[in-house]
């Protein structure tokens, strides 16, 4: 396959949705550029207000960054969620839409999900209040860990430049819930004294 490389400005325009269609189409139809990831990360690095090295963008606002010897999830606002091997949602704010009225706000037609069977979980950044992800799941569904990247394999075997330190590739979220369970309800300051609506119908 031929070696292709686009100027950084083109990648920036792609990110910002500024590429004209004919240019975008030719990028879609052409061979991929080998240095895309590096230029992509370089453009994003210029956009964030902090200095930590971006290892992997996760969403519009969330990045896995190298902080000292740690790899953490960080919001563009600067809020830090902790080790990337824990599901960041467990460190976010959560609001659950589980009533007819709240679901009507988002889905004004009859096709909205049915409360009691399905709930909509909105995850916000505690630092800036931005909405980071929205999940729809049955009541009682464990938080979905969308993506646990195998960073060491990616950098070592696919990009051919290993990261400085190697971390065990494992989901640490269960350790977090284990700690919460041990700490119990006494460990938190309740913000809502109302009893939650019972889900059983």
């Amino acid at each position: 396959m031929p070696e292709i490389s686009y100027p950084k400005e083109v990648i920036r325009d792609l990110i910002e949705g500024k590429l004209p269609w004919n240019q975008l189409k030719s990028i879609i139809s052409g061979y991929k550029d080998n240095d895309r990831f590096d230029k992509y990360v370089a453009v994003l690095q210029e956009k964030v207000p902090w200095q930590e090295r971006i290892l992997l963008p996760l969403t519009d606002e969330l990045y896995i960054v190298q902080k000292g010897k740690e790899r953490i999830v960080k919001c563009s606002c600067g809020y830090e969620f902790g080790d990337y091997r824990e599901n960041w949602k467990l460190k976010a704010l959560i609001h659950v839409r589980d009533t007819e009225a709240e679901l009507d706000e988002i889905y004004p037609y009859p096709s909205k999900p049915e409360p009691g069977y399905c709930e909509m979980r909105e995850h916000y950044c505690p630092g800036c209040g931005i909405q980071l992800e929205v999940d729809t799941v049955p009541f009682g569904y464990p938080a979905v860990f969308d993506f646990l990247p195998d960073l060491d394999t990616f950098y070592r075997d696919w990009l051919r430049r290993p990261l400085d330190t190697k971390l065990e590739f494992t989901d640490l979220s269960y350790e977090l819930t284990r700690r919460w369970s041990a700490e119990g309800r006494e460990s938190i300051k309740k913000t809502d004294t109302k009893a939650r609506r019972r889900k059983k119908v």
Partner: peptide, 20 residues
């Protein structure tokens, strides 16, 4: 809107303990 979100939402841990 963003301020309202922060006021109405809960830290995940608190929600988890209630939901559990």
């Amino acid at each position: 809107i963003k301020q309202t979100r922060r006021e109405k939402a809960k830290p995940f841990k608190e929600w988890w303990l209630e939901e559990r």
